[in-house]
Simulated scan of single mutants.
Amino acid sequence: MKKSFKKKGGNHQRSAMSQSAEGDVKAKKHLGQHFLTDEGVAEKIAGTLSYSGYEKVLEIGPGMGVLTKYLLKKDLDVHVIEIDRESVAYLQEHYPALQGKIHEKDFLKYDVSEIFGQEQFAIIGNFPYNISTQIVFKMLELREYIPEFSGMFQKEVAQRICEKEGNKTYGILSVLVQAFYEAEYLFTVPPSVFNPPPKVDSGVLRLTRKEDLSLPCDEKLFFRVVKTAFQQRRKTLRNSLKIFDLPENITEDSIFGLRPEQLSTARFIELTQKIQPHAV
């Protein structure tokens, strides 16, 4: 597993220094912070959303606001959620436009309906690597309210989310995300644009919600089938899905002779439909 780190933005390139005499946020080793120093990259990430069909945006982990300031230039209602108290204090001092919109919370534990109610909103950010997949899973839980999602991940994670069947990196995240969103890997970000530089490349992706969020099968069973199949990804589905105790005449179907990485999202839906009448 790659070492995770949390990326924090700066409001100019000099602000990426881990220590500053002018009150910038200090990089915290226990959070694994790496400050984004490239203004062009920050602006490019801000431009990954279409900003169409919604007026509210939530940025996760804004740090010192290198991305935030480009979001604030757009005609949007921008909110940020940040767990680092020092970063919160910095944002409060340097971004008066965010007054009342800086939420010192843990996104994974926070009920965002307290901010947006039932309104549509997009999510964007330079996501902490150690919780990036958890952020995606929570986004899927909130998909009814999130038409767009974009941001920076560890490159391998971003590629995995956007991968298609037939590849070794294709997995649970690929299938579940692509059941509800169109996933696009946009561009790679090198370590050199961070201070201190991480040991891995980063990747930026965009997810655009599909018009129809309904699945032609039981949704909870679909999630269960996908997760169970990939837990033993080297086995055929006939073996990895034995936990469902399916009748032999069902598992004789050719689809059960495949391995999970060979099935597209559509075929996983087909598989779930075959299992559904017999699932407990």
Rank of each mutant, 00 (worst) to 15 (best):
F5E: 10
K7W: 01
K7P: 10
K8Q: 15
G10H: 07
Q13S: 05
R14V: 06
S15C: 10
S15Y: 07
A16E: 11
A21E: 12
A27C: 13
K28T: 13
K29G: 07
G32N: 12
H34Q: 08
L36S: 06
T37Q: 11
T37A: 11
D38C: 11
K44C: 05
K44G: 03
A46V: 12
G47D: 13
T48H: 09
S50Y: 04
Y51T: 02
S52I: 02
E55F: 05
E55W: 05
E59N: 13
I60Y: 01
G61C: 09
P62T: 12
L72C: 02
K73P: 08
D75C: 05
D77L: 01
D77V: 01
V80F: 01
I81S: 03
E82H: 05
E82D: 08
I83Y: 12
S87P: 08
Y90V: 05
L91V: 06
H94C: 04
P96R: 13
Q99L: 11
I102T: 08
H103G: 02
F107K: 10
L108N: 12
K109C: 04
I115M: 08
F116I: 03
A122W: 06
I123W: 01
I124G: 03
I124C: 06
I124S: 09
F127W: 06
I131D: 01
I131S: 07
T133I: 06
Q134K: 14
Q134M: 11
V136K: 00
V136H: 01
L142P: 03
E144S: 12
Y145T: 09
I146N: 03
P147V: 02
M152Y: 08
M152R: 04
K155I: 03
E156P: 02
V157D: 03
I161P: 01
E163L: 05
E163P: 05
E165K: 14
G166Y: 11
K168Q: 15
K168C: 05
K168I: 10
V175R: 02
V175T: 07
L176G: 07
L176C: 02
V177C: 12
F180H: 13
F180T: 07
A183K: 06
A183N: 06
Y185M: 06
T188N: 06
T188F: 00
P191A: 05
S192Y: 01
F194D: 04
F194E: 04
F194H: 04
N195W: 00
P198F: 00
V204P: 00
L205Y: 00
R206T: 12
T208W: 01
R209T: 02
R209W: 03
E211A: 14
C217K: 14
K220R: 15
L221A: 11
V225A: 12
K227S: 15
A229Y: 00
Q232V: 09
R233P: 14
R233V: 15
R234F: 05
R234A: 14
R234G: 15
K235C: 14
L237F: 01
N239Y: 11
K242C: 10
I243M: 15
I243A: 15
F244L: 03
P247L: 13
E248C: 10
I250F: 12
S254E: 15
I255V: 14
F256R: 12
L258V: 06
P260Y: 07
P260T: 11
E261G: 08
Q262P: 10
T265F: 01
A266V: 05
A266Q: 12
I269Q: 04
L271R: 00
T272C: 01
I275L: 07
P277L: 04
H278E: 10
